[in-house]
Amino acid sequence: MKKLLFIAVIFTSLVISAQNITNIEAPKPVYEVEDGLVKVTNFYVTGEIREQGFYDAEKKLTGEWIQYNKTGKRTIVANYYKGVKVGKWLVWQGDKMLQVDYEQSRVANVSEWKGTSTLADN
C-alpha cells in the first residue's frame, strides 16, 4: 500500500510540474502614455521585447512600430498614420534588407540591399 501511495504522489508531482512547464506565458503587454499616444510593448515568453509601437486615441496604429526577433535584433521597422501604412518600412531577412515605401497603404517602391553594408545595420 505504501508503494502504491508513493507512486501516486510521484506521478501527481510529475503531472503538475509538466503542466507548469507547458503553460508558460509571455509577460503581459506594457502600456504607457507618451505625447498623447499609447505606447505598447509586447514580449516573447523569454521576456525579450517582441514588438513596440503606438496607438492613437482612436486605437489606430500610428507612428513607428518595431518588431524584434527572439535574440533582440530588429526584423521590421514600420510607420503608420491613423492605421494607414505610410513612409519607409525596413525589413531584415537574413543577409538582406528590404526598404518598402508606402503611400496611402499601398506599396510605392521596393529596394533591396544585400551583403555587408552597415548603412542600415540593425
Rank of each mutant, 00 (worst) to 15 (best):
residue 98 L to T: 09
residue 3 K to R: 10
residue 58 E to H: 04
residue 105 S to P: 02
residue 66 I to Q: 07
residue 73 K to R: 12
residue 72 G to D: 03
residue 36 G to T: 11
residue 99 Q to P: 15
residue 116 T to C: 06
residue 82 K to E: 07
residue 105 S to G: 08
residue 110 V to I: 13
residue 85 K to E: 04
residue 36 G to M: 12
residue 106 R to Y: 03
residue 50 R to L: 10
residue 49 I to Y: 02
residue 109 N to D: 11
residue 90 L to G: 03
residue 58 E to K: 08
residue 115 G to F: 09
residue 74 R to H: 07
residue 53 G to F: 00
residue 20 N to L: 13
residue 70 K to N: 07
residue 4 L to W: 04
residue 74 R to S: 11
residue 61 L to R: 13
residue 70 K to E: 13
residue 55 Y to M: 02
residue 1 M to F: 10
residue 84 V to I: 08
residue 26 A to T: 06
residue 62 T to M: 05
residue 65 W to S: 05
residue 119 L to V: 12
residue 60 K to Y: 04
residue 35 D to C: 04
residue 28 K to T: 03
residue 5 L to A: 07
residue 4 L to C: 09
residue 62 T to L: 07
residue 114 K to W: 03
residue 70 K to H: 08
residue 63 G to V: 10
residue 107 V to K: 11
residue 78 A to P: 01
residue 60 K to N: 06
residue 61 L to M: 11
residue 11 F to D: 01
residue 79 N to P: 00
residue 73 K to V: 06
residue 3 K to T: 07
residue 9 V to F: 12
residue 101 D to A: 08
residue 60 K to V: 01
residue 45 V to C: 11
residue 26 A to N: 06
residue 16 I to W: 14
residue 58 E to Q: 07
residue 115 G to A: 02
residue 93 Q to M: 07
residue 19 Q to A: 01
residue 16 I to T: 15
residue 1 M to V: 13
residue 59 K to N: 10
residue 46 T to V: 13
residue 98 L to M: 13
residue 75 T to P: 00
residue 100 V to C: 12
residue 103 E to P: 14
residue 12 T to S: 13
residue 12 T to D: 09
residue 35 D to W: 06
residue 40 V to I: 13
residue 72 G to C: 04
residue 38 V to L: 06
residue 45 V to T: 14
residue 75 T to G: 00
residue 20 N to M: 14
residue 46 T to D: 15
residue 49 I to H: 08
residue 1 M to N: 15
residue 21 I to G: 00
residue 103 E to N: 15
residue 81 Y to H: 14
residue 70 K to I: 08
residue 109 N to L: 11
residue 94 G to T: 03
residue 23 N to C: 09
residue 68 Y to S: 05
residue 94 G to N: 10
residue 94 G to H: 07
residue 64 E to R: 08
residue 63 G to C: 13
residue 2 K to A: 04
residue 16 I to S: 15
residue 34 E to Q: 12
residue 102 Y to T: 02
residue 88 K to V: 09
residue 28 K to I: 00
residue 52 Q to Y: 04
residue 8 A to K: 02
residue 103 E to T: 15
residue 86 V to H: 02
residue 64 E to Q: 13
residue 44 Y to W: 01
residue 118 T to Y: 03
residue 52 Q to G: 02
residue 117 S to D: 09
residue 41 T to K: 03
residue 107 V to I: 14
residue 68 Y to D: 04
residue 119 L to Q: 11
residue 79 N to S: 07
residue 63 G to K: 13
residue 100 V to M: 15
residue 66 I to D: 05
residue 78 A to D: 09
residue 94 G to M: 06
residue 27 P to I: 10
residue 21 I to F: 11
residue 67 Q to S: 15
residue 52 Q to D: 03
residue 81 Y to P: 01
residue 90 L to W: 12
residue 97 M to A: 10
residue 65 W to F: 05
residue 33 V to E: 03
residue 96 K to T: 11
residue 33 V to W: 00
residue 22 T to N: 10
residue 7 I to P: 05
residue 95 D to K: 05
residue 10 I to A: 10
residue 116 T to V: 08
residue 120 A to K: 07
residue 36 G to V: 13
residue 96 K to I: 13
residue 91 V to T: 14
residue 58 E to Y: 05
residue 102 Y to I: 03
residue 106 R to C: 04
residue 2 K to D: 01
residue 120 A to Y: 12
residue 41 T to L: 04
residue 122 N to V: 06
residue 8 A to N: 05
residue 27 P to Q: 12
residue 51 E to M: 14
residue 85 K to T: 00
